[in-house]
């Protein structure tokens, strides 16, 4: 028998680890007086810059760039908030009851309340607790992020077969990773995938909240963030 060839799927996880973007910082404007508007302005600016990074990151997901441009757009328009939130969740894992929007922008319950983000804080923390309990690893987190993108249930997909292929490849990568690294828990891949409905629910809430902030018109928002918000509603 020929020696077993190294599965390209384990390669997907290592590839996703390499494709992981550098940290970006919130850098709140030091000249602006502290207020809820300042906090929301900082977060919207951070999200806008993160979106640029997410779009670049998506291109490195094996198979993503071979989708039609329209399908790439549809997946990103559906999943961007889930990807943003998953990143916040992962950064917040080492912390206790605090959300790490960026390493220089960490919000506790009180700060979230003052900013009108208490509901979101509670939902995101529920996700943080789930992943803490699972002791989710970076390999799993990067794979879940890619799965959230591929599985975003956009209603505008042109080539569902190609998107299904991407989902299958990423799903298989997660399963292969779990069966080699977590033999002690044969249901671990399933447990991880079962966190995705709460992620979807939280992202939906977040989009609605930021959309209503946009409608109120008090918080300046950059064009890409606005464009992505509008694509969701």
């Amino acid at each position: 028998l020929p020696p077993p060839t190294k599965k390209p799927l384990t390669k997907i996880v290592s590839h996703l680890l390499v494709a992981e973007p550098e940290k970006i910082y919130a850098m709140p404007d030091p000249t602006m007086p502290e207020s809820d508007i300042k906090a929301l302005t900082t977060l919207c600016d951070l999200a806008d810059r993160e979106l640029v990074v997410i779009i670049g990151w998506a291109k490195h997901i094996p198979g993503f760039s071979t989708l039609s441009l329209g399908d790439q757009m549809s997946l990103l328009q559906s999943a961007w908030m889930e990807i943003l939130i998953l990143s916040i969740v992962f950064r917040s894992l080492p912390y206790e009851d605090e959300l790490v929007y960026a390493e220089d922008y960490i919000m506790d319950e009180e700060h979230s309340r003052l900013t009108g983000l208490l509901d979101l804080y509670v939902s995101i923390l529920q996700l943080v607790r789930k992943y803490k309990k699972l002791k989710v690893e970076k390999e799993e987190f990067v794979t879940l992020k890619a799965i959230a993108l591929a599985n975003s249930d956009s209603m505008h997909i042109e080539d569902m077969e190609a998107v299904q292929k991407l989902q299958d490849a990423l799903h298989e990568a997660l399963q292969d990773y779990e069966s080699s690294q977590h033999q002690e828990d044969p249901r671990r891949a399933g447990k991880l995938l079962m966190t995705l409905p709460l992620l979807r629910q939280t992202a939906t809430k977040a989009v609605q909240h930021f959309y209503s902030i946009k409608v109120q018109g008090k918080v300046p928002m950059h064009k890409l963030f606005l464009e992505m918000l509008e694509a969701k509603v």
Binding site: H15, I55, K59, H60, M73, E227
Partner: peptide, 20 residues
């Protein structure tokens, strides 16, 4: 597509996705 100009542009920008 016109409505989603920036996303469209950023996706079209040349980065060479690494092939596996």
């Amino acid at each position: 597509k016109e409505k989603h100009k920036i996303l469209h542009q950023l996706l079209q920008n040349s980065t060479s996705p690494v092939d596996l």
